[in-house]
Each structure stands twice: as structure tokens, then as C-alpha cells.
Amino acid sequence: MTAAPFESGEVDLRHHGDAEIGGGLADFAVNVRTGTPPEWLAERLRASIADLAAYPDPRPARRAVARRHGRSADEVLLTAGAAEAFVLLARVLAPRKAVVVHPQFTEPEAALRAAGHAVERVILTKDFTLDPVSLSGGTTSQAPRQDSSIPADADLVVIGNPTNPTSVLHPADAVAALARPGRTVVVDEAFMDCVPGEPESLASRLPAGIVVVRSLTKMWGLAGLRAGYILADPHLVKTISEAQPLWAVSTPALVAVEACSTPEAVAEAETWAAELGAERDRLAAELSARGLYVVPEARASFLCLCVPDALGIRALLRQRGYAVRRGDTFPGLGPDWLRIAVRDRSSNDALLDVLGELGI
């Protein structure tokens, strides 16, 4: 596989799935769960409007997140979505060598660059999984690394788990092993609630040197509300909070965070994750049977696949009313890659029918 060029201008790091949709297109580009927010959550959000005259109080939601992950409240910082978390971390941290493990969500690298940090890319190979080489150190070249080795002198490493866009779930022990004295490892767990039981999450373990970023956007359909949080050691949380504007998280978002952190909400998410997994595996098998390479062992709410002339296929799908996510704006992928969100069975079958009409 060919690694993406190192220069930041080679790919549009700010291109995201929402740029693909609109105009009545069936949305297979954005990874937000459909049919959300659920009515019980929507009702609480509507009720929260009555309290908008008062300044937001984050303490109840912060305590709810802490209980949900078995942490203390001083290890939690609520944010206006995961995107704000990456911006805050980029502003507060002062890495000598920042490394972003790709392919992955591009906002962490974009935030680091916007804050004036140079970024080195490590491009995962072989089904985009962490391997023993990635834990061994490696060289210190400034070129993109195609052997997935992380330089020993990297003092900031950013990785997604499960990773967007590949849907790969890395073992928690492998991710935790990236940490070492003097290094901060930021783990983007925005899609971890797609995994029943979250066995590879570090949110409850939170080893030394690990920062976990979580989002409510995907599971609960709150992209327009902006709700997420950071889990980290209390000293770092305090430092980040001092860089965050006052009242950065709105009252409705705080209500959502608290409500979605209850045992009942977690149980609902688990049920959906199990249903998602069955349909995702079925869709992956259907695509693989057509001779397409689908990144194996997908665990999030989307599939990453290699299709000859993917950009051309994407354009043809748009003509037929379907939006999928282009892959060439993810470092480490290229023009033959697409990301497809997993929807309900009938919607997925309709997409498969259209792909069949295109000879796929």
C-alpha cells in the first residue's frame, strides 16, 4: 500500500462526511445512527429549554460520566463534541514530536497543525492493524512511515479505536503499550459504543499517559448539539479546562451527556450495537462476495472498502441518489477507497442493488 504524502496540502483534512450529503441523497456517508435521538432523549432536550436563562452547570453531567466509566469527576472534562476536545488538546500540549496514526479521523491532525505543531504520520499497513513493530520504536525519519513503526522519541501519539475510517478495533493492551514516560497517547474512542461490552476501551482503565476522547454524536444522533468529553489524569484535565472557554458546553448538551450516561442508556446502546454488528457483518459479506476488498473484522458503524475507480463509482452513486464517503481525503488511503455507513437491512439492500446495476 502506498502511504499518503507527508505534506498537509496533499489531502483535505477538513473534508468530512457531512460534505457528501444533501439534495435528497440517501445518506451512507455520515456515521451517525439513524432514527435518533430516541424520543426519551428528545423529550429531555426539549424540557431543558426551560433552563436556558441560567448559565450551564456541568457538575451533574460530569459526575454521571465519571460513574459511567468508574472514574473520579476530576478525571472528566466535558466538551462541545470530540472536535473541541482535539482543539483543546492541541492548544494545551506542547509536543516536540507529534505522531498521528493513519488512516484515521483527520480532525486531530488538523487541530495540531492549526495550533502550530509539526505532525509526523505513521501509516498502518496489513489491514490497518497495530503490529509488534509499532511498539518497538523505529527510526526518526520525517517521511511518512509505511511500516507502522512509531518513533521512540514521539512524545504525543494520536490513534483511533475503533478507527475511522477503517472500522478496525485495536486490542486495548496494544494501544496502552504505546504509552511510556514522557509520552501522551490520545485515543479517539468516538465509535467505541458500537462495540458490545466495549472490551477494548481504555476509558475505565485509563493507564498513565493515556487520554481518552469520547463522543455522544454517533450513538445518540447529536451531531448538531455537540456533546463529548475527555478522560485524563486530574492535572491534565485541570490544565485543559483552563484553556476552555467558560460555559463551552450548553445546557441541552449537558442534559444529553447526563442522560446518556445512565445504566439504562448504556444498556440501550448495547442492544443497538449488537443489532448493528449483525447487519454490518452481513453487508460486509455481501460486498466481499462481489470480489471487493472490505477491511476485515470491522467493529464500528461503517465499512471501509477498496473499489477500482472509487471516485468514479461515488459519482455514479450520487447520480442514482446515494451518498458515500470518499476515501482519498484520509492519509494512507487513496482514490480507490470508500467508506460506507451501515444502515438498516432494507436500506443496505437498496444500496447493494444499485451497486449491482453498476456492475459491482
Rank of each mutant, 00 (worst) to 15 (best):
P5N: 03
D12Y: 04
L13C: 11
H15I: 00
H15A: 12
G17D: 05
E20F: 13
A26R: 15
G35I: 04
P38T: 07
W40I: 03
A42Y: 04
E43T: 14
L45C: 10
A50Q: 12
A50D: 15
A53Q: 10
A54Y: 05
P56H: 04
R63L: 08
V65Q: 06
V65C: 08
V65D: 03
H69T: 04
A73F: 00
L77I: 03
L78K: 07
T79Y: 07
L89M: 11
A94C: 04
R96V: 07
V100Y: 09
V101Y: 07
V101F: 09
Q104R: 09
T106Q: 14
T106E: 12
E107P: 09
L112F: 10
L112V: 06
A114L: 11
A114P: 10
G116M: 06
P132N: 04
P144Y: 07
I159M: 05
S167V: 00
P171L: 07
A172R: 13
V186C: 05
V187P: 06
E189K: 00
M192H: 03
D193V: 03
P196W: 03
G197E: 11
P199T: 03
E200V: 00
S201P: 03
L202Y: 05
S204D: 11
S204L: 00
R205E: 07
V213C: 02
V213E: 02
L216A: 12
K218I: 03
M219P: 01
L225S: 12
A227N: 07
G228A: 06
I230N: 07
L231G: 10
A248N: 11
T251Y: 08
A253M: 08
S261L: 02
A265G: 12
V266G: 01
A267D: 15
E270Q: 14
T271E: 13
A274N: 08
A274T: 15
E279P: 12
A284C: 10
A284K: 09
E286K: 14
A289D: 13
V294G: 13
F302Q: 05
F302G: 11
L303A: 05
V307G: 10
P308H: 08
P308W: 04
P308M: 06
D309G: 10
R314Q: 14
L316C: 06
L317K: 09
G321C: 08
Y322I: 15
Y322G: 01
R326M: 02
F330H: 11
G332E: 10
G332Y: 12
P335N: 12
P335K: 11
W337K: 03
R345M: 01
S346Q: 14
A350L: 11
L355P: 13
G356M: 02
